[in-house]
């Protein structure tokens, strides 16, 4: 019945159908979210006994004054600004090249996708060698003698390189899917309309890829904000030399697991969450505002 009106019975039935997923989501997503949000306000708290003796904003005040946290925020922002545009541009570029060649394209596709499915630890081992000051590949290629991983001036760059490289494969596959979805007629029309190869790229390829670009960008922003395991593996369980690669997520880890400052860790998690919400919110707001240019429709 298409015109059936919702009744108490039908609503209950619907709830019953939804129940498994709802229970899973509430237990594993909503409840931890709420409890860590609450924990961030516990100022006198015994984690093991779960006793809360006082609540307040002291943990946030602590973060506000804590130079390590400031460093973590700054490093995270630098990291995001370094990784996101590079990843998007590089993966788009490589996807375009792969789309041009037919020969061996699936071979290259696999090559680029491999890092995504390889364990972080294995990747870090390889990069440790590449970045090594004395006999590393990178220094051999550049002819320099940079201690990429132990010099605080370079270690964040090193981390950015590894993360960009790791993210490429997945984004290339997404871009290739996007490119495959562009109807060849648009290129033919543009060609007949007198568009050069570059003009075809800017007037057909780019606008048509806009939705997938938005997806990739937002996804990259979120995952870059949450970067942790690459740091842990690349710098031997440290946040880089002299905390040069201390990110917000690493700070959270350190406060929670190493220092046992559970409420401070929770508070830094809340701040990280707010950062991500604001930045992805801004991104979506921007894309919504310009949606007509991007998707060719008002939303």
């Amino acid at each position: 019945m298409i015109n059936a009106k919702p009744t108490l019975k039908s609503t209950l039935k619907a709830l019953l159908y939804l129940a498994p997923l709802l229970i899973v989501t509430i237990t594993f997503t909503i409840w931890p979210l709420i409890s860590s949000f609450l924990m961030s306000f516990y100022t006198k708290y015994n984690y093991f006994t779960n006793q809360v003796k006082a609540m307040g904003g002291a943990n946030f005040a602590y973060l506000w004054q804590n130079p390590d946290f400031h460093l973590a925020v700054r490093n995270t922002l630098v990291f995001v600004i370094g990784v996101v545009p590079l990843t998007v541009i590089l993966s788009l570029g490589i996807a375009l090249l792969l789309n041009q060649i037919n020969w061996l394209s699936s071979f290259f596709r696999t090559i680029y996708f491999l890092p995504f499915v390889t364990s972080t630890v294995a990747i870090s081992l390889v990069w440790n060698w590449i970045f090594h000051q004395d006999n590393g590949l990178l220094n051999a290629l550049l002819g320099g003698s940079v201690d990429w991983l132990n010099d605080p001036h370079y270690s964040l760059t090193a981390l950015i390189i590894v993360c960009v490289w790791r993210g490429l494969g997945f984004n290339i596959v997404l871009f290739l899917a996007g490119l495959n979805n562009i109807d060849n007629h648009y290129y033919q029309a543009a060609k007949l309309d007198g568009a050069s190869a570059w003009q075809q790229f800017t007037n057909v390829t780019l606008p048509m890829l806009a939705p997938i670009t938005v997806l990739i960008t937002v996804n990259e922003i979120i995952s870059s904000f949450k970067v942790f395991d690459q740091i842990y593996a690349l710098f031997h369980g440290q946040a880089g030399p002299a905390n040069a690669d201390l990110t917000m997520m690493y700070y959270l880890y350190q406060k929670f697991y190493v220092e046992g400052q559970y409420p401070v860790a929770a508070a830094s998690g809340v701040v990280l969450f707010i950062f991500i919400v604001i930045i992805t919110g801004l991104a979506f707001w921007y894309f919504q505002r310009h949606s007509i240019k991007i998707w060719g429709r008002r939303s």
Partner: peptide, 30 residues
Amino acid sequence: RNRNIGMVFQDYALYPQLNVMDNIAFPLKM
């Protein structure tokens, strides 16, 4: 590009991100 031909495709192939004015003016812009 240099044959000076106008073509109408079966599915029209209008550029979705451009409005009608810009679609019509596209070859002139090029």
